[in-house]
Amino acid sequence: MKISRKIAGALALSAAAAVVLAGCTSRNDPGQTAEPGATDGASTEDLTIAFVPKLQGIPYFEAMNTGGQQAAEELGFEWLYQGPTTADAAAQADIVRSFIQQGVDVLFVAPNDPNSMAPLLEEAQAAGIHVATTDTDAPDSVREVFVNQASVDGIGEALTDTLLEAMGGSGQYAIVSCGETAANLNAWIEVQEAYTASEYPDAEIVDIVYAGEDQAAATQMATDLMNSHPDLTGLVGECTSSAPGVAQAVEDAGRTGEVFTVGLGTPQSMLPYLESGSSSGSILWDVEALGYLTGWAGVQLATDGDLGDLSGVDNEALAEAEYDESTGVLLLGPPTVFTAENAGDYDY
């Protein structure tokens, strides 16, 4: 008994240590230098630009990170990248606070919850940090610029056009969305509804369901939708987890060619479905270019540069980027439609 207690103690201790260590590796990125007191208008040499994604470790934000690192190398600044391991507003807030304490020069956030992020951004600004949003906006905040991947209209219309082209311009379709309160997804859906009603009078959105970020749930819901609407000929997967999910449901039901799908999926995850025909197209944007544009915008903010002047940018993926000064939105350009032909060219 005594021995087993000792073993138990040792095991519990090592488990506790491991958990603590796990916490450390995800929280503290070695190599980050804390420089208290942000400095404005310095040369880009000692400029630190931090980006807090919604979620670390998913290919989407890793691709943005790649783009940001590329910008850091070419433009010469330090790029810091750290996000929560679950799309959790509180965990994200902790990371934002740690960047405020480190006194970075520019702080980019893709907020999980724009409302709760707003006061934190104010705090950062009060500490002398340039604050901005990228990928997802916090509209009622002090952010100086929002780097937008694609306009809401652009995404909504591209999704609708691609799907309706496959459906022959008419018929019933349904949307499998993800987070029920996700502002960007809901904005796209609104455009899809209005655009479908005005441009495709013979088409109808019969249902909108929410699967969370769960691929299997999205697939099951798509299956349920096909069953409850026998005349359904189209499905939209509104986020990167439901886009392959709805295509998989069509394949599993053996209805490829009868029910068409489109979605916002990363090229690599959609490739098998684009090739088999269960997905008619994936609408997204060049995520690496978005990361690059974010890094570039950070430099402009810190050096009081002109966000509207992209002439000095040597990156053809940013050729169509434009800045709207009245709204403070820096737009990457129109969305990209990935098909079986070009999806293989991207490694995310």
């Binding site: 958990v19 796990a22 470790g57 890793e62 391991t85 990363t266």
Partner: peptide, 30 residues
């Protein structure tokens, strides 16, 4: 069995441990 700590505490701890392990295997990509 041998630690005599309530299972919810132990498995909550190991859940985090396993999560870390899984993320290491994912290696920041799908």
């Amino acid at each position: 069995a041998y630690g005599r700590v309530h299972p919810i505490i132990i498995t909550f701890g190991t859940a985090n441990l396993f999560q870390w392990l899984g993320l290491r295997v994912f290696d920041s990509s799908t």
